[in-house]
Write a protein that binds this DNA or RNA. Sequence first.
DNA 1: ACCTGTGAAGATTTTCACAGCA
DNA 2: TGCTGTGAAAATCTTCACAGGT
Lengths: 272, 272
Amino acid sequence: MTSPQAGPEGAPALGASRVTGTGRARTRAVPQATVARLAVYLRILGELVERGTETASSDELAAVCGVNSAMLRKDLSYVGSHGIRGVGYEVGPLLRHLESALGLTHRQPVALVGIGNLGHALAGYGGFGGRGFPVTALFDVDPDLVGIKINGIVVEHARDIPQTCRERDVTIGMIATPAPAAQGACDLLVRAGVSSILNFAPVVLQVPEQVEVRKVDLAVELQILAFHVARRHLAGSDLSGHDGSAQHSLRGVRPAPDPGRDTVNRHAVVTS
Amino acid sequence: MTSPQAGPEGAPALGASRVTGTGRARTRAVPQATVARLAVYLRILGELVERGTETASSDELAAVCGVNSAMLRKDLSYVGSHGIRGVGYEVGPLLRHLESALGLTHRQPVALVGIGNLGHALAGYGGFGGRGFPVTALFDVDPDLVGIKINGIVVEHARDIPQTCRERDVTIGMIATPAPAAQGACDLLVRAGVSSILNFAPVVLQVPEQVEVRKVDLAVELQILAFHVARRHLAGSDLSGHDGSAQHSLRGVRPAPDPGRDTVNRHAVVTS
DNA sequence: ACCTGTGAAGATTTTCACAGCA
DNA sequence: TGCTGTGAAAATCTTCACAGGT
């Protein structure tokens, strides 16, 4: 599985449409792989807007996003065609169109359970709010943590998850607890009515089917990479010192290398 | 894309085999999606071993891993069949077999570039070493960070990446820098001979084709979940309070709910 | 009787390649 | 002439369903 760049994958469908596969189909099916890529296109478009770029062809966008241009066009076609033949796409309008297609028109309050090592980093990262996902509630069970403030948010006891999440209209939950506590945290979030969960704990969560869970497992990512390392060893040593990327253009944005093989996962937002 | 549980995806092939898709095929192709799932099976098997479980059928394992039993059997068949008809799989031997199939027989020293918010959390997380991925080198460009120690490892200046990584036989690099610095960090890692990179920065990295990059982009994950939330809204309100998971068995390990739709990404290892 | 290993069928996803509009 | 939008072909990945051991 390699698309833009390997990572997690899968995703639901959009608008009144449905995602290919699960559930009864109705309007139009948007492949899950497509939804994941649309999120990537969205970010790239945002960067282009900041750069002042007004239009871009599918070839240019695809190069920057690391995908095949035909795939990018097909992906965009699932949410309606807005390109101009012979010209390309208008960056700004396309950006807004994708935002509404992906349901990013409203802010989605996020709750974070587990304020340990990673949880602290996630809570302290300011990038979520800027992207429409304000971290609105923090939970843990450690008495030393309950009560402290991080970025202005008070850490509450996990037992208050149901009530607090409902009060603050939390729609997305993130679990960064130790593995043994993850299912319990998940159950509480579900009871709070949260239907989308991003799970960082190395556990396969049990949830009712209407709940969507996405998992980020760093150990698994490393193992996949380790497999790659092992495979290269068997293949024979490499040759060059490296750097074979051909500078491309589009106002300084470097194009992506080979499209990929995997299907969905993408980049990270928690930077330094 | 939903398999065990949605997340990033894609992965290379194993042993003398190759991954479906990219490259010239030789021995046998192991689907990238399969490699990602094998890593999950591996973790679950480890848990079962700790529990003292000696054998498990594909149905039991599949339930715990959140996949279809036929898929689990087929996945295992790609690395050689070691099950016992009428009985199931011997947990211990299968675990060891998968470890060698995934190339996890050696430790893979990891280098981390970017000791900011997330980087600190990753550097402080002790779970990597236990899983065979000791964080062996830390880098940043901030004078206030260079020189400090985290878990016994001294943070070095990023300019030393090539030399230090070679000295310590780093095979995997993790990038947790701010987006603008990611490509530079990547170039240095590549120059150091690192062929596998886990990228947390929201950028599509440009790398020579022999380098494998996996991306973890939290913003994209949240957007995918947001899409799910939006879709549910259009569909109609939910009904129950929740918790529809049917307790299953296999010594306390709860089975997984509906298999998924996405294809690759998986769980996280950085817990509280 | 139970459970694995798999060919074959079915679903999805990706890539081709080209008609058609600007 | 350039580039989008897409039907159709190709490639992948999943699920079926059953032959074959134990």
